[in-house]
């Protein structure tokens, strides 16, 4: 079955769902429709797309996207790729875990790396990074820490644990705290 045939078949049964073909995939324009479409894909006698292969989050600067790949264990001749787009600032996508158990860890990873909230996920918390981590590292605007320089928090911690710190490190931490902006412009100039 080609992409057009699949699209027409879905639109026959779910007429109010807006689908748009993008390259070799179907974009579900309204994220709230996702669960209905996926339930239909799984339960339909003709399509029988009952195997969810992968769930991926992508950052496109102006929006975040989640891509799903579906295959069928019975009809082995075709596959379907679905996409959903959400806003960067408050991304919410309905979770597929009630329909496909296999989405559990992958949605947790998309949440951890991109910050996409999956509504209805039984246990949405970080999976690869630790619980106290702040930020979503795979987003394009994530800034890594500078691991060669001790900053104020480090010096405080070291003092609390009776570890001796040399004057040099203390001075560097102070300069980071006060002259933070001048340091950044210096490193930008060096990189350019």
């Amino acid at each position: 079955m080609t992409l057009d045939e699949i699209k027409r078949h879905i639109e026959q049964h779910l007429p109010d769902v807006a689908l748009k073909p993008v390259r070799e995939s179907l974009l579900v324009e309204n994220a709230a429709d996702l669960t209905r479409v996926v339930e239909f894909l799984k339960d339909d006698g003709v399509l029988q797309l009952n195997y969810l292969s992968s769930v991926t989050g992508v950052d496109y600067l102006t929006f975040l996207e989640c891509v799903y790949h579906f295959y069928s264990v019975e009809n082995k001749t075709y596959s379907l790729q679905l996409r959903v787009r959400v806003d960067r600032d408050d991304p919410h996508i309905p979770s597929l875990v009630p329909i496909f158990r296999g989405a559990e860890f992958q949605e947790r990873e998309a949440y951890d790396m991109y910050g996409i909230q999956f509504d209805g996920h039984p246990d949405l918390r970080r999976i690869l990074m630790w619980d106290g981590f702040a930020g979503h590292p795979m987003r394009k605007d994530y800034q890594q820490e500078d691991s060669e320089v001790l900053d104020g928090d480090d010096i405080e911690w070291l003092r609390k644990h009776d570890v001796s710190v040399s004057e040099e490190h203390i001075k560097m931490a102070e300069s980071l705290r006060t002259g933070g902006e001048s340091e950044e412009t210096q490193s930008e100039q060096a990189e350019a």
Binding site: Y51, L52, V73, K76, F100, R101, G102
Partner: peptide, 20 residues
Amino acid sequence: ELAINASVTGPMLRASGVNY
């Protein structure tokens, strides 16, 4: 059924009887 639903693949899936 649980194996297919949970996206299990490889020898684990085939050991449960699914020909994929």
